[in-house]
């Protein structure tokens, strides 16, 4: 797990301007519909692109677990996934994305859901406590398993 993002977030946001650039699995669309009544891939990507969905605090960068991408030698190509918290319509959420390591190198929106308690507690491991204090002052809410 890394404490710094692997991808440039602006590149991902810019890629969302074109539906062809981003793969959105059905499970992600179902979550977006259930949480925010965002029903289509087009609506979801547009909301990210024009920053109605405000992607904020970086959570972590992990290796993709279910990875079957192989290079010419049959070796697995490591894929890193960046995760962020976002805000949409006064609600917090969590999203994760990565670049598909084979041409045409589309992006994949891997997750889009409400912040999970475990994921939120990871924030404490990732960030400097002083930074968390600063975030709290500007309205960041910390969750823990006791809540």
């Amino acid at each position: 797990m890394s404490r710094t993002p692997f991808y440039n977030l602006k590149d991902f946001i810019a890629a969302c301007s074109n539906e062809q650039n981003v793969v959105v699995p059905r499970s992600v669309l179902d979550d977006a519909q259930r949480l925010f009544n965002i029903c289509t891939k087009k609506q979801l990507l547009e909301a990210i692109n024009i920053e109605d969905i405000k992607i904020g605090v970086f959570v972590n960068c992990n290796e993709l677990e279910k990875n079957n991408y192989k290079d010419g030698m049959g070796c697995t190509i490591p894929v890193l996934v960046d995760a962020y918290y976002f805000q949409y319509s006064n609600e917090d959420g969590y999203l994760a994305f990565h670049l598909i390591p084979i041409p045409p190198n589309k992006w994949r929106l891997k997750s889009f859901h409400a912040p999970q308690k475990e994921a939120l507690t990871q924030l404490g491991d990732c960030l400097d406590p002083k930074l968390i204090e600063c975030l709290k002052k500007i309205g960041y809410k910390e969750y823990n398993n006791a809540n």
């Binding site: 519909q33 990875n67 079957n68 192989k70 598909i100 084979i102 994949r108």
Partner: peptide, 20 residues
Amino acid sequence: FCECCGSSNTEIRTSSRYFP
């Protein structure tokens, strides 16, 4: 191949989504 994980173990299915 699956764009999510790179596997070629894929199949085409009919799937439903529900819009209330």
